[in-house]
Design a protein around this nucleic acid. Structure first.
Length: 424
RNA sequence: GUGGACGUAGCUCAGUUGGUUAGAGCUCCGGAUUGUGAUUCCGGAGGUCGUGGGUUCGAGUCCCAUCGUCCACCCCA
């Protein structure tokens, strides 16, 4: 039997009624990023599978079992991007953006992960991504975090906790990793199955296990921060000072390790308690080895990704005001002489008032249903033109929101009158 | 991938221990003396009860499968 046509699991439609928060978020984000001097990058959704294997890490869950990979007609293995950073770095290397220079960029778009969908977790979701390249000093770590804070402020969302940690350099991490494996190995029998498996593949991930028995063991484990070398420690302290200096509150979470392999030094996560299990709205950190690892010149980098669906869910939950895009006016027209005149006048108004949102009635109907549509679409004013008005080269202007009495206005005065009424 | 809950009109939901043409509210459309909405009144449209099998004389109501949604795990934004 023919199956009902429906969207692919975990991939959602945004309908006109739900588009306002998306538009608002994008507009605000673009402004905030520009305010910090970040330029936009627009990238393909598909990259070579190899890129993600090398960037994200071959043994990560994201690459191991969540990528949408396929072989194209030329026999090449391609993947829908599971995150944005890899593509940004690829583009940076390819176009020489990272050759001995600083780059501040941002990027947005859909990313794909084959996971079991759940509230706040979808197979196609959207991220906002901010990256700064070519700056090794901790001041950019702070800058990037401050951008996220500015975004929350401009949007009017609140209630986040900024969690902070440092992974140190790859070398210091290796030392720590050895100490951790040694410690966990001694307690292997008490670990849960997942953690035992990770012991061999990705032992740091054992640190954020939620299994109670494992947590107990982890509590006594060697601390990552104790294994930082002097330079890493200095870097991390500078980041903390910088944040304190800007009045950005944070808490250090030594169990915060990222799921992607490329992070070094600073890692951070903005979490909320308001979204259930999917509590991370924004996460990022420093990845000084990534560019080189992908074949570019050794270039430090810091950045973060924001989960747009989660942020929007939070905006809805906190009832953040979002500017509406309802029409300003709805133009009712009826009668044999007025329809064409109204169409011409509507075009003229839109031409003269570029910000004007005007819906011209179409499909006929009496004045009553037309006014009903006008009210229903949220317009502030109705313009009414029947043959009576057309005969006087005028139109009736009627407020639908109790803003004054209806009045008749000649066509040629209408642009100025509307501009005044609507503040255009 | 694991465990659990759920799936009836566009939306929110009712539907008795399986029994004749499946209901409500909201939305939508039309009307209430000829050209004025959001209140009120009247009328109308709209569902093969997610889909496919099965049990039964008979299933929205029971069973199986499948798709999807939600919750938790896992993972992560």
């Amino acid at each position: 039997m023919a199956q009902k046509l429906q969207a692919v699991r975990g991939m959602n439609d945004v309908l006109p009624a739900g588009a306002a928060p998306w538009q608002h978020l994008h507009a605000v984000a673009a402004e905030v990023f520009a305010a910090y001097g970040y330029g936009e990058l627009r990238l393909p959704v598909v990259e070579r599978t190899e890129l993600f294997k090398r960037a994200v890490g071959e043994v990560t869950d994201v690459v191991e079992k969540e990528m949408y990979s396929f072989v194209d007609r030329g026999g090449e293995s391609l993947s829908l991007r599971p995150e944005l950073t890899a593509g940004v770095v690829r583009a940076g290397i390819e176009h020489g953006l990272l050759y001995n220079q600083q780059q501040r960029v941002w990027c947005t778009g859909p990313v794909f992960r084959y996971e079991r969908p759940q509230a706040g977790r979808y197979r196609q979701f959207h991220q906002l991504d901010v990256e700064a390249f070519g700056i090794a000093t901790p001041d950019v770590d702070v800058e990037v975090i401050a951008i996220a804070a500015a975004l929350w402020r401009r949007l009017g969302v609140s209630g986040f906790t900024l969690q902070l940690n440092s992974l140190g350099t790859p070398e210091s991490r290796l030392g720590y990793r050895a100490a951790l494996v040694e410690y966990l190995g001694r307690h292997e029998a008490s670990l849960d199955e997942d953690s035992r498996r990770r012991l061999g593949t990705n032992p740091l991930r054992v640190l954020d296990s939620k299994v109670p028995a494992t947590r107990e063991i982890v509590a006594g484990a060697p601390q990552l921060l104790d294994h930082l070398d002097a330079a890493s420690r200095t870097h991390f302290e500078a980041v903390q000072r910088g944040l304190a200096d800007l009045g950005i509150a944070y808490t250090i979470n030594q169990r915060l390790v990222r799921g992607l392999d490329y992070y070094t030094h600073t890692v951070f996560e903005w979490t909320t308690t308001q979204l259930g299990a999917q509590d991370a709205v924004c996460a990022g950190g420093r990845y000084d080895g990534l560019v080189e690892q992908l074949g570019g010149p050794a270039t430090p980098g810091v950045g973060f990704g924001v989960g747009i669906e989660r942020l929007i869910a939070l905006m809805a939950l906190q009832e953040v005001p979002v500017p509406g895009k309802a029409p300003h006016v709805y133009f009712c027209r009826f009668g044999s002489h007025s329809e064409a005149a109204a169409a011409r006048l509507a075009e003229e108004l839109r031409r003269q008032l570029p910000g004007l949102r005007l819906v011209l009635n179409a499909g006929g109907g009496g004045i009553k249903p037309q006014l009903k549509r006008a009210d229903g679409c949220g317009a502030r004013y109705a313009l009414i033109m029947g043959d009576d008005e057309a005969a006087q080269s005028a139109v009736q202007v009627k407020s639908l929101r109790g803003e004054g009495e209806p009045f008749t206005c000649p066509w040629h005065e209408l642009p100025a009158r509307l501009a005044g009424l609507l503040g255009l």
